[in-house]
Computed example of a mutant assay.
Amino acid sequence: MALGATLITLALAAGGKAFAHHGWSWADSEQTELEGTIETISMSPPHPSLEVRDADGTLWQVDLGNPNQTQRSGFTGDTAETGDAITVLGNRNSDASRAHIKAVRITINGTNYDMYPERIVAE
C-alpha cells in the first residue's frame, strides 16, 4: 500500500511540473531578441531546446515548440550545429534572474524557423 501511495504522489508531482511548464504564463508578454552561439541542441520531448551563450557569456535555455511544431518550422536535429550563430525572438522568463526564453522564431544562417508564427509581433 505504501508503494502505491508513493507512486501516486510521484505521478501527481510530475503532472504538476509538466502543467506548470506548458503555456506562456511564466513568460513576459513583450518579446525580446537574444543573439548568441548554440552550445547544445536537444530534440527530446516535451520540448526541443537549445542552450545559447550570449556575448556576455550567459548561458540561456531556449525552449522551442513542441516536437511537431518544431519539425513543421523546418528545424530538425540536423539543421544546426553547436557553434552556430543564432538569433532568438521570443518571450523571456518573467523572473529576470533566469536566463530562459521561449522562442517564437529562431534564425540561423539567415533562415527563419517559426515555432509560433501566430505569436510573432516584431518584424
Rank of each mutant, 00 (worst) to 15 (best):
L89D: 00
G16D: 02
L89Q: 09
D78S: 15
I86T: 03
P67F: 12
S42A: 01
E51P: 03
D78E: 15
N66W: 04
N68G: 03
T9F: 13
A55M: 02
S73W: 06
L12W: 08
P46I: 02
A5V: 05
S25I: 08
L89A: 01
S44K: 07
L7A: 13
E30L: 08
L59V: 14
A13Q: 05
S49C: 05
A85K: 14
A20K: 13
G65K: 11
T6H: 06
F19N: 09
A13T: 04
L7C: 10
E51S: 13
G57V: 08
S49D: 07
P46F: 06
A85V: 04
H22E: 14
A13D: 00
V88Q: 04
W24F: 15
R72G: 01
G23M: 12
S73Y: 06
N91P: 00
E39R: 10
S49M: 10
S73N: 07
V62I: 12
L7R: 13
T32K: 15
D28H: 10
D63W: 12
T37C: 01
H47Q: 06
W60G: 02
G36Y: 02
I41K: 02
R53I: 11
R72S: 14
L34M: 09
H22G: 11
T6K: 12
G74F: 12
S44C: 00
V52K: 05
D78L: 14
Q61L: 11
T9P: 00
T32D: 11
P67K: 14
L89G: 02
S42V: 00
M1E: 04
N66Q: 08
T37D: 01
E35Y: 07
I86Y: 08
E35H: 10
E81N: 15
Q69F: 03
L7Q: 13
D84F: 00
W60H: 08
V52C: 13
G15N: 10
H47F: 03
G16R: 11
M43V: 07
